[in-house]
Design a protein around this nucleic acid. Sequence first.
DNA 1: ACAGGATTTAGAATCATTCTAAATTTATTA
DNA 2: TAATAAATTTAGAATGATTCTAAATCCTGT
Lengths: 127, 127
Amino acid sequence: MTKQREAVLRVVRSEKCHYTAEEIFERAKEILPEISRATVYNNLHALERDKLIRRITGEDASDRYDSAFIPHGHLYCTECHSISDFNVPDFALTLSGIIGGEIDSYELKVRYICPACSESRATEKRA
Amino acid sequence: MTKQREAVLRVVRSEKCHYTAEEIFERAKEILPEISRATVYNNLHALERDKLIRRITGEDASDRYDSAFIPHGHLYCTECHSISDFNVPDFALTLSGIIGGEIDSYELKVRYICPACSESRATEKRA
DNA sequence: ACAGGATTTAGAATCATTCTAAATTTATTA
DNA sequence: TAATAAATTTAGAATGATTCTAAATCCTGT
């Protein structure tokens, strides 16, 4: 665990982080101004391999990361593109039951319209 | 629905397709030799928007696609990188229950070791 | 201190995807 | 059917996230 890896981990673990590699790079530079982009990528991969962080794929051009404390799903709003977390109780267990074997990890993403956007849509209609 | 869009859809709907855009392009050229890569991308986006096909993200550098008949999850083997489908009964319903609102779509990916690889590992250990 | 192995760095290279602008096709309206 | 508008297609250039490279640096164990 080098100081670079520690810095990357600290950034990803910061509050409500769903950052891209680039954003993590920017923030890691505030801790270690000399850190390079390649190192950030290297460490994101290493930390993901060791299950200290989790990669979130798909909704943008670039991957995002979050801390892996509790397995959870992600909600994407198709209007404002915000990301939030949600939990499916005992889902890992449910999955291994269906699959009939051990699971390494899972990724669950739901696209929907978030309450805020849903509300502002309704307001518009009324107007 | 142009003949190009039809060709792309036909390729994605071919048996057990989990192709990348590039693979779809190669196969679409067998139907329409003049088709261009940009058209394949355009139509993949259009077909996804219209929910005629589904995009699968993440496990490779490039996205993959499959036909969207029945909502289902994907199993990735971490050893041989094969992809297969599986079904979580009534999952869309479960999700909208948890989220408390309507869902646009969901993507569920599970990483595990497939039965074939699991077996060959066991065989190795025995040897 | 020293050897060996892993990590870091800057920048170049790669490669999937998107963009562009012109040409063509399809749909609409007269 | 002719005329016009709107959407789609095309080839190739551009973009941009990520990976690669090769040299420098940092640990670790002796």
